[in-house]
């Protein structure tokens, strides 16, 4: 009876949570990621290449509003490097003592600079489509990193007979298959600073690793603490079982 009820409880949990996940569209292939699993960490070199892709390819259209320049030290950069990276951008500040707004070089405590001042400007510059903010992209899509990788590498010629809408591109994995974003990555479309060969697959892996970090910058701290907490709880539970057995010894 007890075992049956236990397994029923487990079955309920799995059935319900599993079905909640299965709300996506097309099945996306599973890949291995550096940040998966209990001991997973973000691959620093891959993230740095991903930042370069974001800067050179994505940031023309997509904002990254939740990330500050100071966060770049998570990628393995020094504070001086983060400061230098920020200084390449200009931000509006003010009003100053004369009541005027002015522009200045960005500093580490500034957020990443948006490509468009507002959503309407973004639509106007992109054929009516709004490029979404990328800060939470990996958490905000069913399938997460696997889905984004599949999407970025999943552009193809539309099968014969597909009625493509004006300005749309065919993608194997985008829900509905018609995506406004043109293929963002191309073979050797970027020259990596560290000399890595810039295949489309390599670029997709790098940008997805970078965006996974942007979605959850505290993941490494979470898993590290989790391992300690688990060890503590398992030891504690062992002691509690021993205490319970001792206490109940005279009853059974």
């Amino acid at each position: 009876m007890r075992k049956a009820m236990m397994s029923a409880a487990a079955a309920v949990l799995m059935a319900l949570s599993g079905s909640a996940l299965a709300a996506g569209g097309v099945e996306v292939p599973e890949r291995e990621w550096s940040f998966e699993g209990v001991f997973g960490t973000y691959d620093r070199a891959s993230m740095q290449r991903g930042l370069q892709i974001y800067k050179e390819s994505c940031s023309g259209c997509h904002s990254l509003n939740l990330i500050y320049f100071r966060n770049l030290t998570d990628l393995g950069y020094t504070e001086a490097q983060a400061k230098a990276f920020a200084a390449e951008y200009e931000v509006q500040d003010g009003p100053n003592d004369e009541g005027e707004m002015y522009t200045r070089a960005a500093i580490p405590s500034d957020r990443f600079v948006k490509p468009f001042p507002n959503d309407n400007a973004a639509r106007a510059g992109n054929n009516g489509a709004l490029p979404p903010d990328l800060s939470l992209m990996v958490e905000a899509r069913p399938g997460g990193a696997n889905y984004l990788y599949a999407l970025l590498t999943g552009y193809a010629d539309a099968p014969a007979g597909t009625d493509m809408m004006e300005g749309m591109n065919y993608n194997n994995y985008f829900p509905g298959h018609q995506i406004a974003m043109a293929p963002p990555l191309s073979e050797d479309g970027i020259e990596y600073e560290d000399g890595t060969k810039a295949t489309v697959a390599q670029q997709a892996e790098d940008i997805v690793t970078f965006l996974a970090w942007a979605s959850e910058p505290n993941m490494e701290a979470r898993k590290k603490m989790g391992i300690k907490v688990m060890i503590f709880l398992i030891v504690l539970t062992g002691i509690l079982i021993a205490v319970k057995k001792r206490v109940w010894a005279d009853v059974h």
Partner: peptide, 12 residues
């Protein structure tokens, strides 16, 4: 004692 054992497993 017995509730503590349950609590241990539950917290895990």
């Amino acid at each position: 004692a017995k509730d503590s054992v349950g609590m241990g497993f539950f917290l895990i």
